[in-house]
């Protein structure tokens, strides 16, 4: 614990800042990289750093989901795509002043919106009022498991989870249709040419 004037700075706050800056550097480096393998690895590093940050912010469930699903499966999927496509971006394109302007304006507006927000860690913030106290203090009695995230996910917000499974099913069906259909067509055309040869 360090004191700076009237402020008390906790070790977790320092960790918070360091990890966020690390994430920022990773995100910005993506703009300048051209090798797609490096880009995908950077994206994996970005996710893993985020997973560590979630532990600093006491959200352990999100942390291991991010580490396994976000950093793991996403990276593997992207590498698989890379194996089927080109390894490198063709060339550095000229600076896009229009998109840079759009991004700056959007960022400035969002930054302006944060002025009204409660500070980090404020127990009185609106997000920590409303339903959150009920989930925290009643879920042990009402649902059972000691982990509040589990009880909220499975009981209070069960429909969200049902919707999530629907989305996963739809995405899986979509992937199979998109990739599978092309393969089937290729096989059919091969069959046709075989028939012609005969």
């Amino acid at each position: 614990m360090i004191t700076l004037g009237n402020d008390v700075i906790l070790a977790s706050d320092i960790l918070n800042v360091v990890l966020l800056v690390l994430m920022l550097i990773t995100a910005l480096s993506l703009i300048f990289l051209r090798n797609l393998f490096a880009i995908i690895m950077m994206s994996g590093i970005f996710s893993l750093t985020a997973a560590v940050l979630y532990v600093v912010w006491d959200s352990v469930d999100v942390s291991f989901t991010e580490a396994s699903v976000g950093a793991g499966i996403s990276t593997v999927l992207m590498l698989a795509t890379l194996a089927l496509t080109a390894p490198e971006e063709k060339r550095i394109r000229q600076r896009h002043w229009a998109s840079l302007a759009v991004v700056t304006v959007t960022g400035a507006l969002l930054g302006y919106a944060t002025i009204d927000m409660p500070r980090y860690g404020d127990p009185e913030a609106p997000v920590n009022k409303h339903v959150a106290p009920r989930y925290i203090y009643e879920s042990g009695k009402e649902v059972g498991p000691p982990n509040m995230v589990t009880s909220t996910l499975a009981a209070y917000r069960g429909y969200d989870t049902l919707g999530e499974t629907t989305v996963i099913f739809t995405a899986a069906a979509g992937v199979i249709t998109i990739i599978g259909a092309a393969r089937r067509r290729r096989r059919t055309s091969a069959d046709v040419s075989k028939v012609r040869e005969v």
Partner: peptide, 23 residues
């Protein structure tokens, strides 16, 4: 305790995010 509500929302969002990335 830290608020469990954002954790629950983001758990759902991470999985949905991977599904859309795959697509």
């Amino acid at each position: 305790y830290t608020n469990p509500v954002p954790s629950v929302l983001i758990l759902t969002a991470i999985v949905v995010g991977v599904a859309t990335t795959a697509l």
